[in-house]
């Protein structure tokens, strides 16, 4: 075998190895889908889909178990809703300010610092929600119970500001300069340009940022597990304790549910519900972001 042949074999082998590494990520997704479906298939053999999606009580650990997922979905939507009403307006304001108003130097410093908000361990945020924010809120809202949806919702909102702001800001910066200059030439102020020209032009990017925020909030676990309480509660009242899909999974995992029992399978049923909720948003966000790249 001569030198050139050896070289060819080596190159081919390396390419194959690298390809297998890249392909591995696909197997992670397949693994998630397979494991979640396999275990929840066992669950749905014992509990009908109708009971699962229309039942209003979730008490799988009681002597007389009830398997209606609605209270957990409601808890998830409630905390997510509170988080979004904090994160979306603030994230958008931050993005507009950083991309249109802030001096370059300031942006360079503030961006990485803001990103630290997303880097703080979520269990620390949970501590903060339970032992710092809830007592403060209780001073203003006497009805607020020690565990509630409001406080972790707000903290989650703060936590996802950087996700919302950095993707929206990227979309706004991608709007070409001549569009801004056209607006200034017509006598518009920076404020008018930002809200009437830049935001509409960067719309799909901003929408993608919002969707990333939503998906983060739905999947967030520790903040709600610590500060929202552990009672599945079909309510839209943010002052009451609630349980989310994620917090339920944590609760059961802590209690050591034996492999193969119905309790063990419920966490996979909750997990697959969660997975499909976030998957829908992720695909929508991916599609929207792909669209911004094509506009200009």
């Amino acid at each position: 075998m001569n030198h050139s042949q050896k070289r060819k074999i080596k190159e081919g082998a390396i390419e194959t190895i690298l390809f297998l590494c890249a392909l591995f990520s696909v197997f992670i997704t397949l693994g998630i889908v397979f494991i979640l479906s396999y275990e929840s298939f066992g669950f749905f053999k014992e509990v009908s889909l109708k009971e699962f999606f229309t039942g209003t009580q979730w008490t799988p650990l009681f002597a007389e178990p009830k398997f209606g997922i609605l209270p957990l979905i409601m808890g998830t939507l409630l905390t997510t809703g509170i988080a979004l009403s904090v994160a979306l307006p603030l994230g958008l304001l931050v993005a507009v300010y950083l991309s249109e108003f802030a001096p370059h130097k300031m942006r360079e410093i503030i961006k990485p610092v803001l990103e630290l908000l997303a880097a703080v361990p979520t269990v620390v945020y949970g501590y903060f929600a339970l032992l710092f924010l809830t007592p403060i809120l209780q001073r203003f809202i006497p009805d607020l119970s020690g565990f509630n949806a409001l406080s972790p919702g707000i903290i989650m909102g703060i936590m996802i500001i950087p996700y919302v702001s950095s993707v929206s800001e990227d979309a706004m910066i991608a709007v070409p300069m001549h569009i801004r200059e056209g607006s200034y030439a017509m006598g518009a102020t920076k404020f008018q340009t930002a809200f009437k020209v830049i935001i509409p032009s960067a719309f799909s990017g901003i929408a993608a940022a919002f969707i990333i925020g939503i998906s983060r909030a739905i999947g967030e676990t520790m903040v709600v597990a610590i500060a929202a309480g552990g009672m599945p509660n079909l309510t839209a009242n943010p002052l009451e304790p609630v349980q989310t899909l994620t917090a339920y999974i944590v609760q059961v995992s802590l209690g050591d549910a034996p492999h193969g029992t119905v309790e063990y399978k419920t966490i996979f049923a909750a997990g697959i519900t969660l997975f499909f909720m976030t998957l829908g948003f992720n695909i929508l966000g991916f599609w929207l972001r792909k669209r911004i790249r094509e506009v200009y």
Binding site: I32, L36, I218, G219, T246, I249, L279, N282, I283
Partner: peptide
């Protein structure tokens, strides 16, 4: 998509 999957799903 994997980057957007909630961490607890990896746990499952």
């Amino acid at each position: 998509n994997l980057a957007g999957v909630p961490s607890i799903v990896y746990g499952l």
